[in-house]
Design a protein around this nucleic acid. Sequence first.
DNA 1: ACCCCGATGTTAGTTACTACCAATCTGGTA
DNA 2: TACCAGATTGGTAGTAACTAACATCGGGGT
Lengths: 214, 214
Amino acid sequence: MPDQPSKLRARRRAETQRTVQAHAVRLFTEHGYDATTVVDVAEAAGMSPMTVYRHFPTKEDLVLVDEYGALVAERIAAQPAAQPPIRRIGNALVDSAATLTGRDRGQGPSASEEFLLARLRLMISTQALRARHLDNHYVLQQAIVDALGCDTTDPDTVFRAQVAASACLAAMHTALVRWVEDDGRTELSAVIAKALAAAFGEAAVDSVGTGPYA
Amino acid sequence: MPDQPSKLRARRRAETQRTVQAHAVRLFTEHGYDATTVVDVAEAAGMSPMTVYRHFPTKEDLVLVDEYGALVAERIAAQPAAQPPIRRIGNALVDSAATLTGRDRGQGPSASEEFLLARLRLMISTQALRARHLDNHYVLQQAIVDALGCDTTDPDTVFRAQVAASACLAAMHTALVRWVEDDGRTELSAVIAKALAAAFGEAAVDSVGTGPYA
DNA sequence: ACCCCGATGTTAGTTACTACCAATCTGGTA
DNA sequence: TACCAGATTGGTAGTAACTAACATCGGGGT
């Protein structure tokens, strides 16, 4: 059963990855992304540069790991197909953000949220990271269009879905920037909902401020 | 008068830049962006690699020169401020595209348009170029928000403007991709107008299909 | 005619990343 | 327990995108 290689291997692997990433983000934040070399990260994590490259194909990936994409695509497919695309995408984005940051009743950012914030700060302020982050949206856009499962024989429908997806993601990204500028004090899902409403009108999200709280 | 250094210098400079860029885009298209080195480009253009770097700070800039940004920002400011931001931005995007491709009555793509198409094809298919191109949108977004000249003391207004700008640019980018997939046979400004209408409703653009033709 | 500055070239160095091979360590199995 | 297979790690060498510092050359304006 090579499908499940003992799981212990996988756990150790995931653990070292987290370790390396934590050191990387810390060093990047302290001394700047460009001023920090991969060798520096390797030394801090106590391993050879080669090993770092084995876990993260590029230096940028040390910051960019994306757990959000799969979540969104999954939720899109789960939405009723009757609603307009923008609404479906918007709901999926808001829900996914709520799940990801999953914060209980207005307390401050948790530890994992602080890490997310640190990563986002880097992604926004560093050109190379910002560029690749936006390119990830490009991939996510395709995933969303696929998940919408619209009639692929009609090129016009596909086009509209692509436009909806890219516009929603752009609005979400702006919300993300805003959230980071506010140091995560507000609630991410609410900021996203506000952004979507600003772009597409109130009809874009089920209802602003709903969700697990309300 | 060092402000206007004889103009002849500037013209020669611009000319060599065009030469280098033409060779670069040709080589990139023929052999692939990643498979072509800057040294290859320099040899093709008949100069040393250093000179190439003097004219284009990075390899990516050989493809990415952006003449669009200034055009858009300028047209935004020229629009009546009474209209909603999305409409103002949408009109500016459509008008700028029409100016840029400036084609007379449905003939095929001109020579300069072929060049634009080649560059866009590279920007879309090559990851590094795609990423930096999207990052340029990020800069353009700021320029648009500034050009809108909204009340900067109210953070909410600024946020809405940012959302509007990023969403419009995303829709325009999708239109761009579509246009390239169609090998520029349709009219770029019309595709952009269609994308904006799909995202924000018919109210987004003054009227689809208007402009210098209609 | 002269001088000055901008454009070009050369060299040497840094850094991200890759290919290849060797060593080692782990986890399950006979 | 002893062992095998495969996963993980490490080292070396190489490529390619840049950067810095310095020399050179040629054209333009005074």
